[in-house]
Amino acid sequence: MSSEAHKDYAGAKLGMWLFLFTEILLFGGLFILYAVYLFFHPKDFAEASNELSLFFGTLNTVVLLTSSLCVAVAVSALQKGNRKLTLILLAATVGAAVLFLINKFFEWSDKISHGIFPDSPILTERVPGEVVFFGLYYITTGLHGLHVLIGAGLLIWVFFLVRSGAVNEKDFVTLENAGLYWHLVDLIWIFIFPLYYLIL
């Protein structure tokens, strides 16, 4: 449509960053709730937090941080013209996303099999602070999981663009923006991890 032949890199990145701000504020709403309810029920939050699997939490943190490294290096690799390395790293990132979701699945199913899910008879028997902790846990990690899914979808799309050469060392802003989105997913998890798994 536009007669401008070249792309506006700074514009594309500015737009992406603005969009990331909206994502931060979206999770921000949940963090406001978390802060207030932690203040109301500090003991209950610690009790409930201890029931979450520290192992899965830490493992997923490592998985996401490492996948973030892969994406960051993938951008540099493409800028240097190393398409093969870029593709390998993108595939690794998507693999990490899948691993993350599998872990999450086990974690959730473990909780659900113990009867801990929103509005379950076992959960509603417990003290209010723990109920709201698990409510927030499901909503926050659920929304985050959704973002992992979207991020992985974006990376798969970019993978094919890189492979076909539509995204290359001269025109890599799409990869960079998809990478930014993936880092955001990581960023949110960096806060979810201590707030939900490490409260004592």
């Binding site: 931060i24 209950d44 929103p118 509603t124 209010p128």
Partner: peptide, 28 residues
């Protein structure tokens, strides 16, 4: 985005009953 998450929570409350705003379930 704050509006988005707020109305999304209304839907989540109605569908799943997580109790975000229900004092009996620790919400406010």
């Amino acid at each position: 985005p704050i509006l988005a998450i707020t109305v999304a929570l209304i839907v989540v409350e109605r569908v799943f009953g997580t109790g975000m705003f229900d004092p009996l379930k620790g919400g406010d």
